[in-house]
């Protein structure tokens, strides 16, 4: 009874031109339904950001790409540039990690927020009116004056709100948030997240929330995909993931996260992540896995349903983590 998804990535494989041993993305499939908030969690080099950017049709230079990325039914990887621009303007918007690097420093806030609207043919006056309302809704005081200010007059947290306003200006159906609060302080993070989730709920926007922080994803998302070395290793509802992680890597991540409410010190996952120069046969996590069996290093486990969740682990049935 799966209705057609807002975002549907299928078998996305991205191989860099510059002779890396393993693909950056290896058969990634994920979906985000209309209005749903989905987390994409992984550590550095897992491919989570490349996946996020692929939705906008942004690929690393000279990459070899197979698979499809469908936004509202249209494959953005196959669209001609003009249509792709239209998708970026109307359907998908992105909130980047570092607002200061992503907003043109020499143009006014008003220009940034109204850019998309004006490109879509909205007259200047109406666009400014809309921008003012948007800035107010993200909690910027004196929004009319803020429109005439420059990015350097704002703190990082305020600027990230401006970026959210700009992203929502075109009324997108899907929001991509790529580590939107990583550059911010914890208390500011809470504020930005509260604005982001409130507006998203009000507008019924779907969101793909890309982050390295499992707990932050848990606080924001309904469902979480976990990535490791360019592949999705587990997909579950947030509650399920925290109660019963099925993949040893997810369990390891959870045990490695320091917790306020527990006396248990964080336990590290031994070894180190797979670099792009290595391409282990079989499960990429096997070398770091406590539960690795002889078969793990030989056979690459596919993502498959086990007890109603998706796991890419040969021993998923026998192992229960908590």
């Amino acid at each position: 009874m799966r209705e057609s998804a807002l975002l549907e990535i299928e078998g996305l494989t991205v191989r860099l031109a510059s002779g890396a041993a393993r693909p950056v993305l290896d058969g990634v499939s994920l979906r985000v339904a209309e209005g749903e908030t989905v987390g994409l969690v992984g550590e550095s080099g897992s491919g989570k950001s490349v996946t996020g950017r692929s939705v906008l049709g942004l690929m690393p230079d000279g990459a070899e790409v197979t698979g499809s990325v469908r936004v509202a039914g249209r494959d953005v990887l196959a669209l001609p540039p003009a249509r792709l621009r239209e998708v970026r303007r109307r359907e998908v918007a992105m909130v980047f990690q570092d607002p200061r690097a992503s907003i043109n420093p020499v143009r006014r806030i008003g220009d940034f927020v109204t850019e998309g609207l004006r490109a879509g043919g909205t007259p200047m006056r109406a666009a400014l009116k809309a921008a003012e309302e948007l800035l107010e809704s993200v909690g910027i005081e004196q929004p009319r004056r803020a429109l005439r200010r420059f990015p350097h007059e704002f703190s990082g947290g305020m600027l990230q709100r401006v970026m959210i306003a700009g992203a929502l200006a075109g009324g997108p159906r899907l929001l991509l948030a790529d580590e939107p609060t990583t550059a911010l302080d914890v208390t500011t993070q809470a504020e930005v997240i509260s604005i982001l989730t409130r507006l998203q709920a009000e507008r019924g926007t779907g969101m793909l929330f890309v982050t390295h922080d499992l707990d932050l994803a848990a606080a924001v998302c309904d469902r979480i995909y976990v990535m490791y070395a360019g592949r999705i290793v587990e997909e579950q509802t947030t509650d399920g993931l925290f109660a019963h992680p099925r993949h040893p890597y997810t369990a390891g991540l959870l045990a490695a996260t320091p917790r306020l409410e527990s006396d248990e010190p964080p336990r590290g996952v031994p070894g180190r992540p797979v670099s792009l120069a290595e391409d282990p046969e079989g499960c990429a996590f096997a070398a770091r896995c406590r539960f690795a069996a002889p078969g793990c290093a030989a056979e690459r486990p596919p993502l498959r349903p086990v007890d109603g969740v998706s796991v890419a682990c040969l021993r998923a049935e026998e192992l229960v983590h908590d």
Binding site: T187, T197, D215
Partner: peptide, 21 residues
């Protein structure tokens, strides 16, 4: 207290933290 509340976790209420802040 605000710093402690701001640490993200399940069932976290960012709106209340924002108000406290």
């Amino acid at each position: 207290r605000l710093l402690l509340d701001s640490v993200p976790r399940r069932g976290w209420d960012p709106a209340r933290i924002a108000a406290d802040r």
